[in-house]
């Protein structure tokens, strides 16, 4: 697991090419697997990029056992 960093995140964005609703779920899964959680800034950024609302993405992720919105042990 890596510490979250904008540079690493940016690289992930570049790797996926164009981020849209069609590949958002898979991308967020990769963010989760890479950093151990999905940071708030990622939800806000991907919301902007895909046109979905942050509340929609947030609400969705909280329904999955294997998505964390906070780093383990981070309160």
């Amino acid at each position: 697991m890596e510490k979250f960093g904008t540079a690493r995140y940016q690289k992930m964005l570049n790797d996926i090419g164009e981020l849209g609703v069609e590949n958002l779920f898979g991308f967020l899964g990769k963010v989760q697997d890479t950093f151990g959680y999905v940071p708030r800034e990622v939800i806000e950024d991907t919301a902007r990029r895909t046109g979905l609302s942050p509340s929609r993405i947030y609400g969705a992720l909280t329904s999955y056992r294997d998505f964390n919105l906070k780093l383990e042990g981070d309160g």
Binding site: I43, S55, Y58, G59, T62, S63
Partner: peptide, 15 residues
């Protein structure tokens, strides 16, 4: 939005 899983499910806002 709805947030949380079964048992903890509630209506909420993003974050």
């Amino acid at each position: 939005t709805f947030a949380g899983r079964l048992g903890q499910m509630e209506v909420g806002t993003a974050f």
